[in-house]
Every structure is written in C-alpha cells, then in structure tokens.
C-alpha cells in the first residue's frame, strides 16, 4: 500500500468510526436521553474541572464518573479502550515519557544501565498529564458517541457559537464523506488500470496529482452547493431550527453536572 492509499485508508477508517458513533447514539441510555445542550454544557464543565484539578484523586474521581456515565449509556469499555484509552496512552505517554527524567526534583531511583535520574516531581507530572488527557478524552468521546453529530452542532448554539460556524461544520461533516468516496473511486479506477508496483517517486507524483484533481472537484462542488443554497433563498444569513425540549431529567442531570464540577474545582484546588 502506498502513501496515498494509506492516507485514504485512514480517512475511511475515520468514516467507519463516525458511522459506529451514530449507531451508539441511537441506543437507549442515560446520556442518549438527555437534551444535547445539557450534555455539551455538563461534559464541558467536567472536562474543565479535570483539567484544572491539582489533586490526583480528584481527577480519578471524575474519571470514575465518566465510567459510570459510559456504563449507564451502553458504551462498552472495549469500545472506549480501543478508541480512547490505548491511543491516548500511547500518544500522551510519548509526550510524558521524558518528564520523569528531565523535571528536577527528589531523585527516587535511576534507570539501570543508563543511570538516568528518576524524579518524584517528574513522575507526578507525567501521571497528571496522562490521567487528565485520558479523562478529558473519555468524556469527549462519550459526548460524541451518545449524541448524533447534528445534535452536537445544534447544541453548540447554546455556547454562543455563531450559526454560520455551526452550518460550516455541518456541511464539512456532510461533504467529507462525499469527497472520500470520490477519492476512493479515483484510486480504484487507477488501480484497475495498473500492473506491478510503483516506485516511490511515481507514487508521490500520483498522490500530488490526485490531490490536485480532488481539490478541483471540491471547488466545483462548493460552487454548485452555493448555487443550490441560493436557489432556495439563501442570502448570506443562515437560519436554523433549534428544536430541543428540556425535561425534568435534564434539569436534574444539569444540577448533578454542576455539583460534581463545583466539587471537583473546590477539592482539586
């Protein structure tokens, strides 16, 4: 598989994940039943509380709450493990890896053979980084998994995100699938006419040419979509329906989110 094919395979994988997310969002769980505005605000507060906490047990408690939310929303730990915990551990682990050796402090040991000093302050920093990111990522993915993307977008309106940004995000999500399909068709049609392996330079040239063609198609598509919007009355201002309804359960959950976040802020100082 060459560079272009690997990149495309990555995009297709992302598409499959997006489709998985839409399936989970249809399940009958606690988070799925909540008003998306309550979820967005509540989960955002928990993420900020975890990020600002200076006590490890407070971050751990928020993480446990995230696990309880996942269990009550029918999000399997296996899915979270595959989608969040392992990738985040690998990514932030690499970033945090030098911390125990480069942050000055009380030396609690040395690496055998290399004799590098291992400091308590460095270890604590690495631990804080990994647990904060794991907690924030778990909460973010829970929000995305339990809410159709369209509802997330509309819920952003309560955070005063301008309607034009919300519409652009919605259209980007809509058309990324179309363009990925287009790229895959291009690739398959080329592959069907090829015999043998391509050299590295040919492969890069092909990737550049394909990107150019795709860009040209994208520009054409954007012009056409703009025409289709004009044809239905678009005149520069976008209007949309925010048709959510808040129930008693939403208010109770919002109260819980606020209380937990406030407690985390207070005890995590």
């Amino acid at each position: 598989m060459n560079f272009f094919e690997r990149t495309l395979a990555g995009f297709l994988d992302a598409v499959e994940h997006a489709l998985d997310a839409e399936e989970v969002s249809q399940a009958n769980g606690l988070l799925q039943r909540l008003d998306p505005r309550v979820k967005v605000v509540g989960i955002l507060m928990l993420i900020i509380a975890a990020a600002m906490a200076h006590k490890f047990w407070v971050i751990g408690a928020v993480f446990v709450i995230a696990l309880i939310l996942a269990a009550s929303s029918r999000v399997s730990p296996l899915l979270l493990g595959k989608r969040v915990w392992i990738p985040v551990l690998l990514f932030t682990g690499i970033i945090a890896l030098p911390a125990p050796f480069v942050i000055p402090g009380q030396v609690i040991g040395r690496i055998p053979g290399l004799d590098w000093p291992l400091t308590a302050q460095g270890l604590a920093s690495a631990r804080y980084l990994v647990t904060r990111v794991e907690t924030a990522a778990t909460l973010s993915v829970l929000l995305i998994l339990s809410t159709p993307w369209t509802h997330v977008l509309k819920a952003l309106r309560v955070l005063r995100v301008p309607v034009v940004i919300v519409v652009i995000l919605g259209m980007a999500y809509r058309y990324i699938f179309l363009l990925i399909d287009s790229a895959r068709d291009m690739l398959e049609s080329r592959r069907s006419r090829m015999v043998g392996e391509m050299t590295g330079s040919d492969s890069r040239r092909l990737a550049a040419a394909s990107v150019g063609v795709l860009m040209s198609k994208t520009l054409q598509l954007s012009g056409d979509v703009y025409s289709a919007m004009l044809a239905r009355g678009f005149r520069g201002e976008v209007y949309m329906l925010d048709d959510f309804q808040t129930t008693a359960v939403d208010w109770i959950m919002l109260f819980c989110f606020v209380a937990i976040a406030a407690a985390a802020f207070y005890y995590g100082r």
């Binding site: 919605g170 259209m171 999500y173 056409d224 979509v225 289709a228 239905r232 976008v238 209007y239 949309m240």
Partner: peptide
C-alpha cells in the same frame, strides 16, 4: 424551484428534516 441533477449538490444539511426545512427557514 429548481431540482438539480446531482442530488448530492442539493443535500448539504446534516439531516433530511433540516434539508427540507432549509428553504422555508431562509
């Protein structure tokens, strides 16, 4: 009203409901 040949051009909203509501809202 114009219905385009390529439906993907005309379906730019996140859901079917939003798509049908686009014109009346504008």
């Amino acid at each position: 009203g114009l219905v385009f040949q390529n439906p993907d051009i005309q379906l730019f909203s996140p859901t079917v409901f939003d798509e049908v509501a686009f014109g009346p809202l504008q």
